[in-house]
Design a protein around this nucleic acid. Structure first.
Lengths: 219, 219
DNA sequence: TGTCTGTTGGTGACTAAGTCACCGACCCGG
DNA sequence: CCGGGTCGGTGACTTAGTCACCAACAGACA
């Protein structure tokens, strides 16, 4: 039998009976790009596991500035929905479907049953939690200690497409790094002067990935 | 019967049978001040719940700079040990006993049994996880967007003792905020000039808490 | 008691980053 | 082809972090 569960390698060892329960009680949901999945005042009612697409989690400060905390990709579990579910806590962070997303919604009762009865499922969930914690540790270290030019170079490499293009505005890049638009503009100018990128309205083209790579590693 | 479990209000509703199991299988450990509880290359072998004392979790960058991520206080659970236990992941963060600590060590098997069988215990653990995530979100926002002088003022208020004294060096305060020692020194000078604090070697005295408070809220 | 040593904090000069105000170029709908 | 909104560029300025260095201090010890 073919099921979404097959797409999650960590769940391959799931006990047959529990696997059937999970399959029966969960359902696939489609979320259009741009939907706010959770955020201040919006608690979800099920545990979400992403099948296809990307969810971006970011923090918005009162002064309006934003920073991207992390992303949830295909075949990852969105622990923040879980945390909301189980601890009834309020978050200032917001989760947005960055592309059209298809995900599996596991109802609360089913989630709890799985956690209780399956070692495999438990390990899956806790692994997702530790990944988030580690991601956040790294983010904090980068924001606190690493120079913006190095981080920008790295981000450009991360987010370039097949053709080396990045379809983001300077403001969006600034949000990725938690810095200001002007800073990104100036750094991109410098990168362009050095021949590493070509900038156009709403787009950055990586022209010399090797040089950017070397630069981003240089400290 | 008197047990350490009584000190954890979230566990008060624990099912009697499970409570007995937990009590029987766990043991209290004493950890002297300064002990590295977990860190790169040091995975713990049990889930830790703090009875008395404080554990500081901080991140050390390659360049040697440090930042305090969060603290685990009495009657809180140290989720990072759990994450290590269940996900076998490596962390760059380090946990240190900031004072003499007494804690309860719950062995892995017992922890898993409790998670599996008790809704109350499950909720306790997940609540601890969400608290950590939220703490980290706030930390990131502060580091990325808030001025150091405001954050320093806030930190001084947080960490002053009964008598208004803070027994930390400028370097230690800098680590609390993830900034540089010189920056802290200069800000403290300015605070002293304004009559808000009195600085001495290895010590800062809060002289006008109200003014610091107003200042730290001023943006 | 004086000396030595490691720790702590002070300082100036400089670079990096963030802020503010403003402008011009571009894009799309009408 | 006009007009409003978005996007990016710029100069002047403030805030933060870095670097190199020194002086004051505390505790160990001869």
């Amino acid at each position: 039998m073919q099921s979404w569960i097959d797409h999650f390698p960590e769940l391959s060892g799931l006990e047959p009976e529990l696997r059937a329960t999970l399959d029966r009680q969960s359902r696939v949901v489609e979320v259009p790009r741009g939907t706010v999945i959770f955020g201040p005042g919006q608690a979800p009612d099920a545990h979400l596991m992403v099948l296809e697409g990307v969810v971006r989690v970011h923090q918005v400060a009162e002064n309006g500035r934003e920073i991207v905390l992390y992303r949830v990709h295909s075949h990852e579990s969105c622990v923040l929905t879980t945390a909301c579910l189980l601890a009834y806590e309020e978050y200032s962070a917001e989760g947005i479907a960055e592309s059209d997303v298809s995900a599996v919604a596991v109802p609360r009762t089913c989630f709890e049953e799985m956690i209780g009865r399956s070692e495999v499922f438990r390990r899956f969930v806790f692994a997702a939690y530790s990944k988030r914690l580690t991601d956040l540790f790294v983010t904090i270290e980068e924001v606190a200690f690493r120079r913006v030019d190095l981080r920008l170079a790295q981000k450009l490499l991360e987010r370039q497409g097949e053709d080396g293009d990045i379809l983001l505005t300077h403001q969006q890049l600034a949000t990725e790094l938690g810095t200001a638009r002007e800073v990104v503009s100036r750094q991109l100018q410098e990168f362009q002067r050095r021949g590493w990128v070509a900038v156009a309205r709403g787009r950055v083209h990586v022209a010399d990935a090797a040089a950017l790579e070397a630069f981003s590693r240089s400290a």
